Computed example of a mutant assay.
Amino acid sequence: MDITLARTFLEVSASGSFVLAAQRMHLTQTAVSARIRTLEEQLGRRLFVRNKAGARLTAAGERFVRHATTLIQVWEQARQHVALPAGREEGVSLGAELSLWQPLLADWLVWMHRACPEVALRAEVDSPTRLLDRVHEGSLDLAVLYNPPQRPDLVSELLFEEKLVMVTSASDGTMQPNQYIYVDWGSSFVANHQAAFPELSSPPVSISLGPLALTYLLTVGGSGYFRSGTVQPFLVEGRLRQVANAPEFSWSAYTVYRTRREGHVIERVRQGLHVVAAAQDTSGHGSSLRSPRAKKKPKR
Results as ranks from 00 to 15, higher is better:
residue 1 M to I: 11
residue 1 M to T: 11
residue 2 D to F: 10
residue 3 I to M: 09
residue 5 L to N: 10
residue 5 L to Q: 14
residue 7 R to N: 10
residue 10 L to K: 07
residue 16 G to C: 10
residue 18 F to L: 15
residue 19 V to M: 13
residue 19 V to T: 14
residue 20 L to P: 05
residue 23 Q to D: 12
residue 24 R to L: 13
residue 24 R to A: 13
residue 30 T to S: 14
residue 33 S to P: 08
residue 37 R to P: 02
residue 40 E to P: 08
residue 46 R to E: 14
residue 48 F to S: 05
residue 49 V to G: 06
residue 52 K to Y: 07
residue 52 K to P: 00
residue 54 G to S: 05
residue 59 A to F: 06
residue 63 R to P: 00
residue 65 V to E: 06
residue 65 V to C: 05
residue 70 T to F: 05
residue 72 I to T: 05
residue 75 W to I: 00
residue 77 Q to I: 03
residue 83 A to I: 04
residue 84 L to R: 11
residue 84 L to T: 05
residue 92 V to W: 07
residue 93 S to Y: 04
residue 95 G to D: 06
residue 101 W to M: 15
residue 106 A to E: 13
residue 107 D to T: 12
residue 108 W to N: 06
residue 110 V to I: 15
residue 110 V to F: 11
residue 121 L to A: 08
residue 121 L to S: 02
residue 124 E to H: 08
residue 124 E to T: 15
residue 126 D to A: 15
residue 134 R to E: 12
residue 135 V to H: 03
residue 136 H to G: 15
residue 137 E to D: 14
residue 139 S to C: 13
residue 140 L to A: 06
residue 147 N to M: 13
residue 147 N to T: 11
residue 148 P to V: 10
residue 148 P to S: 06
residue 149 P to D: 11
residue 150 Q to E: 15
residue 151 R to W: 10
residue 152 P to H: 12
residue 152 P to W: 08
residue 157 E to T: 11
residue 157 E to L: 11
residue 158 L to D: 09
residue 159 L to M: 13
residue 160 F to A: 10
residue 161 E to S: 15
residue 161 E to V: 05
residue 163 K to I: 00
residue 167 V to A: 02
residue 167 V to F: 03
residue 174 T to M: 05
residue 177 P to G: 00
residue 179 Q to V: 01
residue 182 Y to Q: 09
residue 184 D to R: 12
residue 184 D to S: 12
residue 187 S to W: 04
residue 188 S to C: 04
residue 188 S to K: 09
residue 190 V to A: 13
residue 191 A to D: 11
residue 191 A to T: 13
residue 198 P to R: 05
residue 200 L to A: 04
residue 205 V to L: 12
residue 205 V to F: 07
residue 206 S to I: 03
residue 206 S to H: 12
residue 209 L to E: 11
residue 211 P to E: 01
residue 212 L to K: 13
residue 216 Y to M: 07
residue 217 L to P: 01
residue 218 L to H: 00
residue 219 T to P: 00
residue 233 P to Y: 07
residue 233 P to R: 08
residue 233 P to D: 04
residue 236 V to E: 09
residue 238 G to E: 02
residue 238 G to Q: 01
residue 239 R to Q: 09
residue 240 L to M: 01
residue 242 Q to E: 15
residue 242 Q to W: 06
residue 242 Q to N: 04
residue 248 E to T: 14
residue 250 S to W: 05
residue 250 S to E: 09
residue 252 S to E: 08
residue 255 T to G: 10
residue 260 R to W: 10
residue 265 V to K: 02
residue 267 E to I: 02
residue 268 R to V: 03
residue 268 R to M: 07
residue 269 V to K: 02
residue 272 G to C: 03
residue 274 H to K: 15
residue 274 H to P: 02
residue 275 V to C: 09
residue 276 V to P: 05
residue 277 A to M: 05
residue 278 A to W: 03
residue 279 A to D: 08
residue 279 A to K: 10
residue 283 S to F: 07
residue 297 K to Y: 09
residue 298 P to N: 09
residue 298 P to Q: 12
residue 298 P to M: 08
